[in-house]
């Protein structure tokens, strides 16, 4: 591996000063992306900052404004957290899909988000919950809607000196539920050919009060299928409505053909997984 300096701050202020320094300063949580990227020269660093010992970045709790998950909190803890399992089903589904148990024990939710892979499994689930990213630098804090967070494959809108502190998912009411599914050729340990995260909120008479659909691996960044959300909202949820939303979701996909699958195959998967995740959301609300 190339040479770099290393720091392990125990407070956010100490960390933010380190990130303000000259050169390429990189955060490290689980290292399950960055260590291999450094080894193979796909990313470089003058300094690596282990952010796991900063208390704010380990937060995992429900507050009045929703679920707060610190950027360094590991995916095993998140997938097992009772409130996540009860009210943020898509996040629970996706946390336990990332890599292996070994990977989930180490990988942070913030690592998955900041690595910004188009295939990042937790991202569609977070998008489906209208997640906000809380970002800080030595000069202040700002909030970014997660839907505005990604700039391209492996790229975020974070500026030099900024780090992700936490992700905030608004409260999920009893008449709402989410779900995430991905397709891979194996059962475990593979990159999503397509991933779909959906959220539904149903009012009286099964009218869709709110719908969110987000797609992975079909565009340079994870994307929302907004037209499909509009097909659902305000209408009575039936199998036919789910089907037309699934067909419409394909419009949001601009997939490429690669070793994992052709563009045409990916479009078909968007339809199938959108249909299935919406069905799971409905079952979770009713169950």
């Amino acid at each position: 591996m190339p040479d770099f300096d290393f720091a392990q701050p125990t407070s956010l202020n100490e960390a933010l000063e380190l990130f303000a320094a000259e050169g390429e300063v990189r955060a490290l949580v689980g290292g399950t992306d960055i260590v291999d990227q450094l080894k193979t020269g796909r990313r470089n660093a003058d300094m690596v900052v282990d952010v796991k010992r900063i208390p704010e970045l380990q937060r995992l709790e429900v507050a009045a404004d929703g679920l707060h998950v610190g950027a360094a909190r590991n995916l095993t803890d998140i997938g097992e957290f009772p409130a996540v399992r009860a009210d943020y089903g898509g996040l629970a589904d996706s946390s336990v899909l990332v890599g292996s148990w070994q990977i989930q024990n180490r990988a942070g939710l913030g690592g998955n988000v900041c690595n910004a892979a188009p295939s990042g499994d937790t991202i569609p689930a977070l998008l489906s919950h209208d997640t906000t990213a809380i970002v800080a630098s030595s000069t202040g804090r700002r909030e970014i809607a997660l839907s505005d967070f990604f700039a391209g494959p492996g790229q975020t809108v974070l500026q030099k000196g900024e780090i992700l502190v936490e992700l905030v998912l608004p409260p999920s009411p009893d008449n709402g539920a989410s779900s995430y599914l991905r397709f891979i050729p194996r059962n475990e340990m593979d990159i999503a050919v397509v991933g779909v995260g959906s959220y539904l909120q149903l009012g009286s008479g099964n009218i869709v009060e709110k719908a969110r659909i987000a797609l992975a691996s079909v565009a340079p960044t994870p994307v929302r299928a907004r037209a499909a959300e509009e097909v659902l909202e305000g209408n009575v949820l039936t199998d036919d409505l789910i089907e037309s939303a699934a067909v419409t979701a394909v419009e949001a996909a601009t997939p490429i053909t690669d070793v994992r699958g052709s563009a045409e195959y990916r479009r078909e998967l968007v339809k199938v997984l959108t249909r299935r995740t919406l069905g799971i959301c409905r079952d979770r609300i009713n169950g």
Binding site: F6, Q8, L28, G30, G31, T32, V35, D36, V48, D50, K52, T76, W101, Q102, I103, N105, R106
Partner: peptide
């Protein structure tokens, strides 16, 4: 908890 030691930096382990 299990981890892949090849993806862990020794410097983190204090």
């Amino acid at each position: 908890r299990t981890a892949n030691a090849c993806l862990v930096l020794a410097a983190e382990m204090g």
